[in-house]
Computed example of a mutant assay.
Amino acid sequence: MVTAAPPSPDLAAEAPAPLAAAEPAEAELTIIVVSYNTRELTLACLETLYANTKDTRFHTVVYDNASSDGSAEAVAEHFPQVELIASQDNLGFAKANNVVAATARTEWLLLLNPDTEVHPGAIDALLAFAKANPGAGITGGRTVFPDGSLNIASCWMRITPWSAFCMAVGLTAAFRGSALFNPEGMGSWQRDSVREVDIVVGCLLMIRRELWEELGGFDLKYFMYGEEADLCLRAAKKGYQPMITPDAQIMHLVGASSGRVADKVVMVAKSRVSLIRDHWSPGMVPLGIGLMWLWGAVRVSAAQIIALTGKTGPREKWRSIWARRKEWLAGYAA
Results as ranks from 00 to 15, higher is better:
residue 176 R to P: 13
residue 283 G to E: 15
residue 72 A to S: 09
residue 276 I to S: 07
residue 321 I to H: 01
residue 41 L to S: 13
residue 208 R to V: 10
residue 5 A to V: 04
residue 306 I to C: 05
residue 29 L to D: 05
residue 29 L to I: 01
residue 5 A to G: 06
residue 143 T to A: 15
residue 300 V to G: 03
residue 329 L to D: 04
residue 306 I to E: 12
residue 115 D to R: 00
residue 180 L to A: 06
residue 60 T to V: 08
residue 217 G to Y: 03
residue 21 A to W: 13
residue 254 V to R: 15
residue 116 T to E: 04
residue 144 V to K: 14
residue 149 S to F: 02
residue 164 A to C: 08
residue 164 A to W: 01
residue 168 A to H: 11
residue 310 G to A: 05
residue 314 P to N: 01
residue 280 W to Y: 11
residue 263 D to R: 00
residue 78 H to E: 14
residue 188 S to C: 00
residue 247 D to I: 01
residue 78 H to R: 15
residue 299 R to F: 03
residue 165 F to E: 04
residue 168 A to C: 08
residue 172 T to S: 08
residue 138 I to F: 07
residue 149 S to R: 10
residue 311 K to Y: 06
residue 291 L to A: 06
residue 128 A to V: 05
residue 307 A to L: 11
residue 240 Y to D: 10
residue 33 V to I: 14
residue 201 V to H: 13
residue 210 E to V: 09
residue 74 A to T: 10
residue 132 A to E: 10
residue 109 L to R: 10
residue 329 L to K: 01
residue 154 S to R: 05
residue 112 L to M: 06
residue 250 I to T: 09
residue 239 G to H: 13
residue 182 N to V: 00
residue 310 G to M: 06
residue 89 D to Y: 13
residue 287 L to Q: 04
residue 151 N to G: 08
residue 304 Q to R: 15
residue 241 Q to N: 11
residue 65 N to T: 01
residue 309 T to L: 14
residue 172 T to K: 15
residue 121 G to I: 05
residue 323 A to F: 06
residue 211 L to Y: 11
residue 296 G to N: 01
residue 56 T to V: 15
residue 231 L to N: 14
residue 281 S to H: 10
residue 40 E to A: 14
residue 272 R to W: 04
residue 136 A to N: 04
residue 319 R to T: 14
residue 119 H to W: 14
residue 210 E to F: 11
residue 99 V to Y: 05
residue 314 P to C: 07
residue 288 G to Y: 00
residue 93 F to T: 10
residue 176 R to V: 09
residue 184 E to D: 03
residue 181 F to E: 00
residue 66 A to H: 13
residue 164 A to P: 03
residue 111 L to Q: 11
residue 248 A to I: 00
residue 306 I to D: 10
residue 320 S to A: 12
residue 79 F to P: 10
residue 320 S to D: 14
residue 268 V to K: 05
residue 206 M to G: 15
residue 56 T to R: 09
residue 69 D to M: 02
residue 156 W to C: 07
residue 275 L to R: 06
residue 107 E to K: 12
residue 169 V to K: 03
residue 48 T to Q: 05
residue 123 I to H: 02
residue 315 R to G: 07
residue 299 R to A: 03
residue 199 I to S: 04
residue 137 G to Y: 00
residue 70 G to T: 08
residue 227 E to Y: 02
residue 280 W to F: 15
residue 231 L to D: 14
residue 180 L to E: 02
residue 44 A to D: 13
residue 208 R to F: 09
residue 112 L to P: 12
residue 271 S to A: 14
residue 245 T to Y: 03
residue 111 L to Y: 08
residue 54 K to M: 06
residue 268 V to L: 06
residue 42 T to M: 07
residue 59 H to L: 01
residue 117 E to F: 03
residue 60 T to M: 00
residue 73 E to N: 10
residue 86 A to F: 02
residue 260 R to C: 03
residue 115 D to Q: 00
residue 3 T to E: 14
residue 215 L to P: 06
residue 204 L to P: 08
residue 236 A to Y: 00
residue 248 A to P: 02
residue 39 R to F: 05
residue 67 S to D: 07
residue 324 R to M: 12
residue 98 N to Y: 08
residue 5 A to S: 15
residue 103 T to Y: 00
residue 240 Y to L: 13
residue 87 S to R: 05
